[in-house]
Amino acid sequence: MVFHSAVPITFGHLGSLLEAFLPWLGLAVVMLLVLALLRRSATALVALLLPVAVWADLFGGPLLSGDRGAHDITAIQHNVSDENTAPARTAQALVNAGPELIALEELTPSALPLYERALAPAYPHHAVEGSVGLWSVYPLADVRLLDIRPRAIDEGWRRGLRVGARTPWGEVAVYVVHLPSVRVRLSGFDCGYRDESAGLLGDAIAAEELERVVLLGDFNGTVDDRGLAPVMSHMNPPTRDFAFSWPEVFPMSRIDHIMARSATVTHVRTLPATGSDHLPIAADIRLAS
Rank of each mutant, 00 (worst) to 15 (best):
R269F: 12
N220L: 07
I205H: 12
W246C: 09
R269T: 11
V214W: 10
T270W: 00
S262R: 04
A204Y: 12
L215M: 09
E208Y: 06
V268L: 11
V231T: 13
N236E: 14
L216D: 09
G221E: 06
P237D: 13
A206S: 15
S245P: 09
L215N: 10
F219M: 13
P238K: 10
F219L: 15
A263G: 03
F219A: 06
H234G: 06
P238G: 12
R240C: 06
T239G: 07
F219S: 05
I255P: 05
F244I: 03
G202N: 12
G227W: 12
W246G: 08
A229Q: 11
L216K: 09
P251G: 03
A263E: 05
I205G: 07
A260I: 02
A263W: 07
H234L: 10
D203C: 04
W246D: 12
P238F: 08
A204R: 15
G217D: 11
I255A: 04
T270N: 05
G217C: 09
P230W: 06
S253H: 03
D225I: 01
T222C: 06
E248H: 12
S245G: 09
M232R: 09
V268A: 08
S262W: 00
A207W: 08
S253Y: 02
P230E: 06
F244W: 15
M252T: 06
R261N: 07
R226I: 05
E248P: 00
D256K: 00
M232L: 14
D224S: 04
S253L: 10
G217M: 05
F244Y: 15
A206H: 13
G227L: 03
T270F: 01
A204Q: 12
R240L: 06
T264F: 00
V214I: 15
V223L: 11
